[in-house]
Amino acid sequence: MSADIKAENQPYDDINVTPMLDLAYVLLVVFIILTTASVQGVKVDSPNTRASENLARPQTRAITITADGTVFLDAYPVDIAQLKSRLADHKAANPALPVVLKADAAAQYDTVMQVLEVAKALDITELGLVTKRQAP
């Protein structure tokens, strides 16, 4: 019996780092998730409207036009030819492709019209315009 007690009181020769590694991996995963969740896309100053709801459907493609006229498709910069090509690919996969157009209030009207012409040429009928809700 005294041999059992003596064995319990002996110092450890090594440290078990497995729980510390588990904690480090959990913290890494949480950091990755929080970092990617904070990326919301391209920030623009949308015009105001009194529309009650502006809801996007699942698998909706977002086209964003910044104040300087840069066009983005789902947060990736594209020119008008690339936009037409990529939207055509998405339209082929989903014939009822919903598209949301989010333009800065200071964006050039010409750029907005070019994007709308691309949508019309591809026969995209589910097209929404994103605005900010104006206080009554």
Rank of each mutant, 00 (worst) to 15 (best):
S2R: 13
A3I: 10
D4Q: 12
D4I: 07
D4N: 14
K6I: 10
A7C: 00
A7Q: 12
E8D: 12
E8K: 15
N9R: 13
Q10E: 12
P11Q: 05
D14L: 10
D14Q: 13
I15D: 05
N16S: 03
V17M: 14
V17S: 07
T18I: 12
P19S: 00
M20C: 03
M20Y: 14
L23G: 13
A24D: 07
Y25F: 11
V30C: 01
V30R: 00
F31A: 06
I32K: 02
T35G: 00
A37I: 01
A37E: 04
S38L: 02
V39T: 09
Q40H: 11
G41Q: 02
G41L: 00
V42P: 02
K43Y: 08
V44C: 02
D45M: 03
D45R: 11
D45I: 08
D45H: 09
D45F: 06
S46I: 06
N48V: 13
N48F: 15
N48I: 09
T49F: 07
A51F: 09
S52E: 14
E53I: 08
L55H: 09
L55M: 13
R57M: 10
P58E: 08
P58Y: 04
P58T: 04
T60R: 07
T60N: 09
A62V: 15
I63T: 03
T64Y: 02
T66L: 03
A67L: 04
G69K: 05
V71A: 03
L73R: 03
D74M: 03
D74Q: 02
P77D: 03
P77T: 01
P77Y: 00
P77S: 06
Q82E: 11
Q82H: 03
Q82V: 04
L83Y: 04
L83K: 01
K84M: 07
S85F: 04
R86E: 13
R86P: 00
L87F: 03
L87R: 05
D89S: 13
H90L: 10
N94Q: 15
P95S: 03
A96L: 08
A96D: 15
A96T: 12
L97Q: 15
L97C: 01
V100W: 09
L101H: 08
D104N: 04
A105M: 10
A106L: 09
A106F: 02
A106H: 09
Q108V: 07
Y109V: 15
V112R: 14
V112N: 08
M113K: 14
Q114Y: 04
L116Q: 15
L116M: 14
L116T: 10
L116F: 07
E117Q: 15
K120S: 10
I124K: 00
I124V: 11
T125Q: 11
E126D: 14
L127D: 01
G128M: 09
L129R: 06
L129F: 11
L129M: 07
V130D: 14
V130F: 08
V130G: 05
V130N: 10
T131S: 11
K132M: 09
R133T: 12
R133L: 12
Q134G: 11
A135G: 11
